[in-house]
Computed example of a mutant assay.
Amino acid sequence: MQDTFSHRTVLLNEAVDALSVQPDGHYIDATFGRGGHSRLILSGLSTLGRLTVFDKDPQAIAAANALADVDERISVRHEGFKHLGELEAASADGVLMDLGVSSPQIDDPTRGFSFRHDGPLDMRMDTTRGQSVSEWIATADVAEMAEVIREYGEERFAQPIAKAIDRRRQERGPLRTTAELAEVVAGAVKTREPGKDPATRTFQAFRIFINAELEELQQALTAALKVLRPNGRLVVISFHSLEDRIVKQFIAQHSREVFDRRAPFAAPKPMALRSIGRVMPSAEEVAENARSRSAVMRVAERTEVMA
């Protein structure tokens, strides 16, 4: 099926500028999406340059393969970015991660990511494998659902929502569509901040959980340290506080020397990263693309001494 849903790449120029692309370098776009960042990276590469792209989404991979068909500098991997660690150590000059769900995924009702469109309650990034949200909540107990909603959605009404889902499935059977889930959540959430749909946090929580997004992010960040060459750049764009907290803490942890308290006179373990800074979308970008408003980009550089 042809992909007719558009996507506006957030922090496009800022992210690629932060990579400091060298013409003959090897770069990794760990979340290809629809290839906005990849195309700009390619424009800065020579014929000797290389780009490796990862994505779970079959539609994203179809777009990546179409680009690879006309550009031999690209290598495509239909995998999540936790598989970065399978690449050769110290083989990349830059790693870019653009986290979260893309506009085509949100806007396509058949993917089930949004409460604004009725469709199958799926939410899998990779529709070729794994369990859908509908399948999971058909058997998950109240305590498990409440924990997911609380931890990944930061939702204070997690327990009432989980109980409402349980009542609904006992009375009328499994929830199969996004509209059904949104209706149940709306009935359980008594108050909500102005302008925010009651289902926002629950949908975020279920999407993050079903795709193991935070666990995979932690694995991918560790893998990036392995594959980056000295002075290689790590660039990560996140869209909610849970992701950004992980990235921020990871960079901070690896941007300081580590002393072994058991050997106080030993030389400290050298830091693995040097923090470059944080970038937010401009007012102009937010005005043109409302989905960029929550974006935070963090940049770090691999130290010359390999830790």
Results as ranks from 00 to 15, higher is better:
202 T>I: 03
180 E>I: 08
55 D>G: 02
292 S>N: 05
185 V>P: 00
122 D>K: 13
275 S>E: 15
248 K>A: 13
39 R>S: 09
9 T>I: 12
301 E>A: 07
111 R>W: 10
151 E>Y: 01
215 E>S: 09
218 Q>L: 07
295 A>L: 03
240 H>I: 11
48 L>T: 07
188 A>H: 00
261 R>V: 06
89 A>S: 15
221 L>Y: 05
139 T>H: 12
128 T>S: 12
32 F>Q: 05
211 N>G: 05
47 T>K: 13
204 Q>N: 02
198 P>N: 04
214 L>K: 10
76 V>S: 12
301 E>Y: 02
154 E>Y: 00
129 R>E: 14
114 S>C: 03
105 Q>E: 08
242 L>T: 09
150 R>M: 00
101 V>K: 13
128 T>E: 08
91 S>T: 06
77 R>L: 14
267 A>N: 04
258 V>T: 11
285 E>H: 08
130 G>K: 03
142 V>F: 03
50 R>F: 06
117 H>V: 01
140 A>N: 02
177 T>E: 06
276 I>T: 07
240 H>A: 09
130 G>Y: 02
116 R>C: 13
43 S>I: 01
247 V>N: 11
254 H>I: 04
145 M>I: 07
238 S>Y: 07
237 I>D: 10
46 S>F: 07
55 D>T: 03
165 I>Q: 02
237 I>S: 06
163 K>D: 13
168 R>K: 14
159 Q>D: 04
161 I>N: 00
213 E>W: 11
276 I>C: 13
70 V>Q: 12
118 D>N: 15
117 H>Y: 11
279 V>F: 13
226 K>I: 09
275 S>K: 07
299 V>D: 04
265 F>G: 13
170 Q>A: 12
277 G>M: 08
290 A>W: 03
69 D>T: 11
107 D>N: 07
97 M>S: 00
76 V>T: 12
290 A>R: 14
262 R>S: 15
176 R>C: 06
263 A>T: 07
179 A>G: 13
23 P>R: 12
100 G>I: 06
247 V>H: 07
183 E>W: 10
122 D>L: 12
7 H>S: 13
191 T>G: 01
151 E>C: 04
159 Q>H: 05
295 A>W: 00
6 S>C: 10
46 S>V: 06
178 T>S: 09
178 T>G: 11
174 P>Y: 09
219 Q>R: 12
162 A>T: 01
70 V>C: 03
46 S>R: 10
147 E>I: 01
223 A>K: 04
5 F>L: 15
12 L>Q: 07
176 R>M: 14
167 R>L: 12
228 L>I: 11
190 K>F: 03
53 V>Y: 03
84 L>R: 10
200 T>S: 15
61 I>M: 05
45 L>I: 11
231 N>T: 15
194 P>Q: 15
215 E>R: 11
243 E>W: 09
46 S>Q: 09
79 E>C: 05
276 I>A: 09
80 G>E: 10
